[in-house]
Amino acid sequence: MAENVKPRVRVPRDATAGEEITIKTLISHPMESGQRKDGDGNVIPRSIINRFTCTFNGETVIDVTLEPAISTNPYFEFQAIVPETGTFEFTWYDDDGDVYTDSKEITVG
């Protein structure tokens, strides 16, 4: 299991109904590509986050499939529509079966 995996997400606290907001996500993860070799010439096995999803009140905003070519500490920036007050759920799926989640609430005033 990858250690010290910490998701960080930036979402505005409030919005007007139907507003387009920008979401930025970052998660600390080595994203070992499976191409590198250690000091003895042995291949370091692949260990990456292979999928990232963002949903709002259960509806999909974005669903990303990640390959080893995504950099260490995967970063994503995208736009979402906020129809009502609710919660953004962020989920990262690790190769080793771990699932990392984070959620942010947003208020429509």
Binding site: Y75, Q79, A80
Partner: peptide, 18 residues
């Protein structure tokens, strides 16, 4: 490298990454 699939609540079909 990556596949981005956009859902109903995506405000624009755009994304940035590294």
């Amino acid at each position: 490298v990556a596949t981005f699939t956009f859902g109903a609540l995506a405000a624009s079909q755009s994304a940035a990454t590294r």
